[in-house]
Design a protein around this nucleic acid. Sequence first.
RNA 1: GGCCCUAUCGUCUAGUCCGGUCUAGGACACCACGCUUUCAAUGUGGUAACCCGGGUUCGAAUCCCGGUGGGGCUACCA
Length: 501
Amino acid sequence: MSKKEEIRVRIAPSPTGYLHIGTARTALFNYLFAKNQGGNFILRIEDTDLERSDEKFTKEIIESLHWLGIDYDEGPDVGGKYGPYRQSERLETYKKYLQQLLDEDKAYYCFCTEEELEKERESMMKRGEPPVYSGCCANLKADEIKKMHDEGRKPVIRFRMPAKKIIFEDLIKGKVEFNTELIGDITIAKNLDAPLYNFAVVIDDYTMKISHVIRGEDHISNTPKQIAVIEALGFGVPRYAHIPLTLAPDRTKLSKRHGATAIADYRAMGYLPEALLNFMAFLGWNPKTDQEIFSKEELAKNFSLDSMNTAAAIFNIEKLNWLNGNYIRKKDLSELTELCIPYLENAGLIGREGEGDWKISENSSPASFDYLKKITFLEQERLVKLGDLPELVSFFFKKELTYDKELLVWKKMKQGDANKNLRLLKDFLGKISDKNFSKSNLEENLRQMIAEEKLGAGEVFWPLRVALTGLKASPPPLEIAEILGKKETLMRIERAISLSK
RNA sequence: GGCCCUAUCGUCUAGUCCGGUCUAGGACACCACGCUUUCAAUGUGGUAACCCGGGUUCGAAUCCCGGUGGGGCUACCA
């Protein structure tokens, strides 16, 4: 009886930029698979490219993953028994295996320059041949190698690619077959202390006991290279699952020119992690039911690689927006308010000194959490993303509203009626006491007044709404009036009256 | 150029493995209507797809072959 296989998967980003939406999605699928299978999920930082890697990106990747709630069991910041989890800290291990390959003549030093190689490739492509390394350094004699070294030429280490067919059964794509003769002897290290990707992954996945390699489809053509190295070293081959890529609306690779690509950007715009998770999971996977809203836990429970799609999906922000609005509407109000406050602060609408209460920036009057909560509540059902809030509610924080007086006139109304009805409102609301200035009480009384005066509701509500907000579209006026309070409400009406004279 | 992956509404997709129940289902977006002072939310309804060409079969979105389209890789990046 064979020992039950331990499921271990990993995400291996290179810290050369912020956590990309595509990398995050790959991380999600790895996470979901691990959770579903009761396995472990590992974060490994692939920073072998010293020139492009930066520790600040490592930090950012960790932060974004954490924000999304894609938790890993082992990683550079949490440790684990297969560490270290940064490739730059694993150089000794790579060196050992590199030396082994060299000793066994499964790898060799290559002295060709980059320029020579590039020329070679170009002319091969021109001739319609596959651009494969010619192997001119493959059989150098010991004295030739010494001479090159003495001349100060810096060699790279090449892997002697055995000529054969490499076939693997991809968990998503099915059987995939490559002919290694079309690949040639690949470079696996710049030198003994500088391994390259296709070599380093093999060593890491082996030493970290990775059972399933779940990664983007862009790695499918790297797989035969890695399998060849695995076989040369006598390691076991992990299972592979290549997930389809996500593309921009123009069907090309998702890049900066399409707008936001980093998870941090989406966070900044006010997308909720649960919405982003739900959305990313549905790009390539679906539960085969009509359910659209899935929590992280539900996703993990239902996830399977078998139900992954095979074709690339387009990143369509409309659906993300819909999902985000959905999650916002379901959010607990206090929590939502907490989340919204930084956006209000950033927009300069409110501010605070130290741990004190917030103040409205324009007039320094207090803006308590409760007050902000009421405002948030008003917009909860119309908010698409948190970042939209300041613009929607800025009228609450303005000393004086600027709007066109024409706006005060409802479409079914005559010019002068706006002014008349605003006066009516001023008198009417002026008689209601401060403590009765609540939405429900206001509504009841006002409706009655409207009926008595034989007015249309719109003839009163519209001008009122504009007087209070200065906007074409906003939440209902009485809810706003309640939050603004009697004094401020009347001031805004008076201003509208003088404006519409 | 070579190699590899891929193909259902505008988009995400169900259906494809095991042909008939598919006059192709759901969701987003869009349109219309209802509710309504506006916006939103919500309810109801609607527009909209099997890439093309051959074949196999009584019957093909589904199987086979050939095109075409899209994507990826082709580094001393990962």
